[in-house]
Amino acid sequence: MTAVRSGLAEPLPASLEVSDEFESPAAAAGYCPTELLGTFTLLMAGHGRCVSTAMMLGDREYALWQLARAQGMADAQLQAVAGRLFAWLDEAGARQSR
């Protein structure tokens, strides 16, 4: 395959070729597990608590406060999800402090 640049045909960069060595961008970059965050916000809503996903992603103190609130509720599923989110948040904080 070739690309036309400045009127000349040039081969495309090798990085556009198919590769079996794909690594998920979410795993590679340490992005927040959005499905887990969505589950957390829905479970909190089930207890009448409104949680801002934008604030959870952008404000560490807010996120820790919401996770602590979840741990104090009598809901084992919510506590488990909050624990997994805390582990991710703790790991993300460690990456930032390096």
Rank of each mutant, 00 (worst) to 15 (best):
Leu67Gln: 03
Arg5Val: 15
Ala26Thr: 11
Gly48Arg: 05
Ala45His: 08
Glu10Gly: 02
Ala54Tyr: 10
Gly38Thr: 05
Arg95Asp: 07
Arg49Tyr: 03
Ala82Leu: 03
Met55Ala: 13
Ala63Tyr: 03
Pro33Met: 01
Ala14Ile: 09
Leu43Lys: 10
Met1Glu: 11
Ala82Glu: 04
Glu91Gln: 13
Ala74Glu: 15
Leu89Cys: 04
Ala29Glu: 12
Met1Asp: 09
Tyr62Leu: 06
His47Glu: 07
Gln96Gly: 03
Leu89Ala: 13
Asp90Cys: 01
Arg60Trp: 02
Leu43Gly: 02
Thr34Gly: 02
Arg69Gln: 15
Leu16Trp: 13
Tyr31His: 10
Ala70His: 04
Glu17Val: 04
Gln66Glu: 15
Pro33Ile: 00
Phe22Met: 08
Val81Ile: 12
Ala92Tyr: 07
Phe22Glu: 12
Pro13Asp: 15
Ala14Tyr: 04
Thr39Leu: 13
Gly46Ala: 07
Glu10Met: 13
Met55Leu: 13
Phe40Ser: 02
Ala45Ile: 00
Leu8Thr: 09
Gly7Leu: 11
Tyr31Asn: 09
Leu16Gln: 12
Leu37Val: 11
Gly30Cys: 08
Val4Tyr: 07
Thr53Ile: 03
Gly38Phe: 01
Leu37Gln: 05
Pro33Tyr: 03
Leu12Gln: 08
Gln77Cys: 01
Val81Pro: 05
Leu64Thr: 04
Thr41Tyr: 00
Leu8Phe: 09
Leu12Tyr: 14
Asp59Lys: 08
Pro13Arg: 14
Arg69His: 06
Ser24His: 14
Phe40Ala: 03
Ala80Ser: 11
Gln96Trp: 07
Met44Lys: 03
Glu10Ser: 01
Gly72Thr: 02
Gly72Pro: 01
Arg98Asp: 07
Gly30Ser: 09
Ala68Leu: 07
Ala76Leu: 08
Ala27Met: 08
